[in-house]
Design a protein around this nucleic acid. Structure first.
Length: 269
DNA sequence: CCTGCTACCTGATGGC
DNA sequence: TGCCATCAGGTAGCAG
């Protein structure tokens, strides 16, 4: 599930909880979650390491260790759950035993990934990421340049992690609704005025969502909590057939690049 | 390089 | 009730 705001909230909340602790033990319970790395490789990299910090890169959660780093990607269903006892209950894929308890990377579908890398910002998955949309480096001019270089529908460009890192299907839909743009518009055919509108929508939607994700802060002890209730801030995602919150239109649902897009044909042009 | 498509997994949901 | 098809917020890998 998590897109940029959720992962950012995880990073900020987790940081003070784990910084300075040591990974005493790293158990790989489902080796598929570390593929294509081997469980031994992950264990060797993680065990005994002190946690120096926790950051976000795109939708990746990055644990800075004394030596090297851990990269986690939650994909659709991955979660972090805190267990006070080191028992392995539920669908834990990887268990990190810290001084204060055990943190489980939980993913029933086993889409999510955990891996160790020697140099965070030189690892291929991080190098492949495009600009971070909540960094000051993300300017209207830069978005304009990305748009004019793409002949795809703007929705697919927004979801391309090698261009802009962190938007997923939900927030891409939301952003386009706020910018009043039809998701099917070819990226390179947006006017500069529309590009500025889109830039503003990206920044605002993410900023608002992040605030929402931080209040209340993520609760790693309650598996049922995991970003429930986020629908409340969504204006268009998942609302097929319902009334548009801005005009008299009805929300439509279409497929783009194998994913679902929601938009209002009345006010998104 | 750019773009589009499928596979990867499991569980929830809804129609019949 | 039970069965089956469909759908899910992501991305790697491959083909054209």
């Amino acid at each position: 599930m998590p897109e940029l705001p959720e992962v950012e909230a995880i990073a900020r909340t987790l940081r003070p909880l784990v910084r300075g602790q040591t990974i005493r033990r790293c158990q790989v319970l489902h080796s598929i979650a570390v593929r294509p790395q081997s469980p031994a490789e992950l264990r060797r990299g993680a065990e005994g390491q002190r946690i120096e910090g926790v950051e976000r890169r795109g939708k990746y959660l990055l644990w800075r260790l004394g030596r090297g780093c851990l990269l986690m990607h939650f994909k659709l269903d991955g979660q972090l759950i805190w267990f006070d006892k080191p028992e392995t209950q539920g669908h834990i894929d990887v268990a990190l035993q810290l001084n204060a308890g055990t943190l489980g990377f939980v993913d029933r579908r086993h889409f999510g990934r955990v891996r160790w890398r020697a140099h965070p910002d030189e690892s291929p998955e991080i190098r492949a990421l495009g600009v971070d949309p909540i960094s000051p480096r993300f300017t209207p001019a830069q978005l304009q340049a990305l748009l004019s270089a793409a002949r795809r529908p703007v929705k697919l460009l927004l979801m391309d992690q090698t261009r802009i890192a962190g938007l997923g299907n939900i927030y891409s839909n939301e952003v386009l609704w706020h910018a009043r743009l039809d998701p099917r518009r070819r990226a390179d055919r947006l006017t500069s005025r529309e590009a500025r509108r889109l830039h503003k929508a990206i920044v605002n939607v993410l900023r608002r969502a992040l605030k929402y994700c931080l209040h209340p802060a993520p609760n790693f002890r309650d598996p049922a909590w995991w970003f429930q209730g986020l629908e409340k801030i969504l204006r268009v995602y998942g609302r097929e057939g319902e009334a548009c919150r801005r005009c008299a239109g009805r929300i439509r649902r279409i497929e783009q690049g194998g994913r679902t897009s929601y938009f209002c044909p009345g006010c998104q042009r």
